[in-house]
Design a protein around this nucleic acid. Structure first.
Lengths: 222, 222
DNA sequence: GTCTATAGTAGGATAGAC
DNA sequence: GTCTATCCTACTATAGAC
């Protein structure tokens, strides 16, 4: 990479086809969604900056130029990879918050949702985690920060409620708590990538909850 | 980036000058060390893949070609950036382990050392954190993993000792504990970069220790 | 929807003057 | 130790045939 790319985003091919009134949308979406999936995998594997359109095309079994029939630019393709996945995550977090569980259960719920995302969308998680600098320096990807901010607010509200309801320690530093847990969840993707034995999100959530709820120190002591 | 670069590493200018028997080593080192510092900053800011030799040269006030008088290649330069800093971190961790504190204090010590590194070497931490994929895919940078493995073993020994001495919970999952704390420490660099108010390592260590030692749950409850 | 071919650009690295 | 000039390579993106 390195060549600056301005994506201006205009029409979406799917909309055009839909307007024709033909084809099941599922099939229409297929090729495009399939390419997005492939791209996600390659971006995650090599890093966005080191991924060329040819890399993606190779993996998809076509030539680089053909990708431009589906996407306006490399950044356009990346945007589609990220936006679809992150929007799903928002919905899942919101569902936990709306469920009105007690604070401890709600936090466990958020953790499970976060870890499910990490385990089910390894590629996207890797991209967000590994290409942080790339994404943050390009105005075109500020939407990632916007979405992340929404997630943070949900977590914060649950933590605040926990303190208010005296389920969590009163002297808790909520910034530290949020940052630590989020960092740990996202970092899980680095431990599981390319590994044979991949623990399920449920197992990980159970362990993380245990760790964060009770801490390191043995109960009997102090 | 994208162009594969093989660094083979041969003579070091400093050695040659030293062999001449002239100059204070400090002054001799200066220019090179200064360039390494500058490079670290630029790599951290833009990401390794998006940093060009011209970017670094601009920041240093020279032309791109001149950098090759000091370093054999871009990767060579990056290697120097990383190796010097990470070796220092190893020494600091080892010092904590040798001090034979009780497990809780030792863990607090490791945390402080880790956070001091993050706060004092923001650039290097950012690079290791953000260009994870780049570093892991190139054989030339496997030394980063080697060094990290040494750090992990030190942390693990302290955690294991804590459990043995019954300072830490017996049912602690050491993998989760280590990963979580390390992820949180390294992630701190993302929160402080470009921020006006930067908490000191000491303040952060105090807060992280509090959080990890005691967890979220209020004592009175459960 | 994919191909061939290619324009246009930019980065890594080198050689030799100063 | 830095500069000028340049080679080589590789990537993004486009145009038009099939």
């Amino acid at each position: 990479m390195g060549r600056p790319v301005k994506s201006e985003r205009k029409s979406d091919p799917r909309v055009l086809v839909a307007a024709n009134g033909r084809r099941a949308p599922e099939v229409t979406t297929d090729r495009r969604a399939q390419l997005v999936e492939t791209a996600a995998e390659v971006f995650a594997q090599k890093g966005v900056g080191n991924t060329t359109m040819r890399d993606i095309a190779d993996e998809a079994g076509i030539l680089a130029g053909s990708l431009y029939h589906h996407f306006r630019s490399k950044d356009d393709l990346l945007e589609e990879v990220l936006r679809s996945a992150l929007d799903e995550l928002t919905v899942a977090y919101e569902k936990v918050e709306r469920s009105e569980l007690d604070a401890v259960s709600a936090l466990e719920g958020l953790m499970l949702v976060g870890l499910r995302f990490v385990t089910e969308k390894e590629a996207v998680t890797s991209i967000v985690q590994n290409d942080y600098t790339y994404l943050h320096d390009m105005a075109a990807f500020s939407f990632v920060d916007d979405i992340t901010a929404v997630h943070r607010k949900i977590w914060r509200r649950v933590l605040e409620r926990g303190v208010r309801e005296e389920a969590f320690r009163a002297d808790l530093d909520l910034d530290i708590a949020y940052r630590s847990m989020m960092a740990a969840i996202v970092a899980e993707v680095r431990w599981r990538r390319g590994r044979a034995r991949k623990p399920t999100a449920e197992v990980l959530a159970e362990k993380h909850s245990m760790f964060y709820l009770h801490g390191l120190v043995a109960r009997g002591k102090k």
